[in-house]
Design a protein around this nucleic acid. Sequence first.
DNA 1: CTGTATCCTTAGGGATACTG
DNA 2: CAGTATCCCTAAGGATACAG
Lengths: 146, 146
Amino acid sequence: MTKSRKPTPPPCPVTYALEIFGDRWTLLVLKDLILEARYRYKDLMAANSGLATNVLADRLKRLEQRGLIEKTRDPQDGRQFVYLPTGTAIGLIPMLVEMIAWSARQGVSQVPPEFLERIERDRAGLIADLTEQVERNLEAHRAIGG
Amino acid sequence: MTKSRKPTPPPCPVTYALEIFGDRWTLLVLKDLILEARYRYKDLMAANSGLATNVLADRLKRLEQRGLIEKTRDPQDGRQFVYLPTGTAIGLIPMLVEMIAWSARQGVSQVPPEFLERIERDRAGLIADLTEQVERNLEAHRAIGG
DNA sequence: CTGTATCCTTAGGGATACTG
DNA sequence: CAGTATCCCTAAGGATACAG
């Protein structure tokens, strides 16, 4: 045998989180699923230049196993699928928002100025609004015929 | 030529953040530096089982180049160094707190119950307290003779 | 369109020996 | 103690062809 990997369950919450989305693509996909309402395979592919088909398929599978997304039929087109974030994934909104805010403070453009302004002034409200928005998006995509 | 890598500067704030700490170790090191007040090489090594010396050295170098930490003489022992988080790094506290809170909500033990309770009830206060605590730790380590 | 299946390359990182 | 320097190896991931 090759020197068995330590299967020690992660005691550290940061380690735990990194095990789920601490790679090159997973968090980007989650961001698309949660904040950009990209629920379809092709949309996720189109949004992430450089992402390979096998990698996306793998990440979606893992996220489903971990309970962060649900794979269901597209009500608008029964031949397609939609990947919808679960409550667990939606719970990542505060962390994503803080990450985006930090990058914005470092000078990353592409962040709407009103976003940064709002988060400094009314973070709780912003997060509440975003969460509500996501819920509405999901509702629309669950409704048959949309 | 091998098909030149796109040097496109990252327009996405999540991508930007991941470029800095989107690997297996950097965020763990940052957590130690920021929340655990581990400022010395040996402490960082001891805290992260499996971390190799060359990898830690590399991460510290990158973080210094990126302006997230400052390498200075240890005032308590002029032969040693201390790596102190800068304001930029301290600005990651909200994100780290949200990440930890999310993991705790997923059932990760090792998170003090009062932490989770506090963040739900008084997030702003918790973050303010943590930030203040960090500032005090840094002050103590900057003072000569400590 | 939504994946699977391969193949192949590379960067990340583990182990270890060694230096100031 | 605080790194540097190697060596090596594996897992992650890019490219592409193909299948349901």
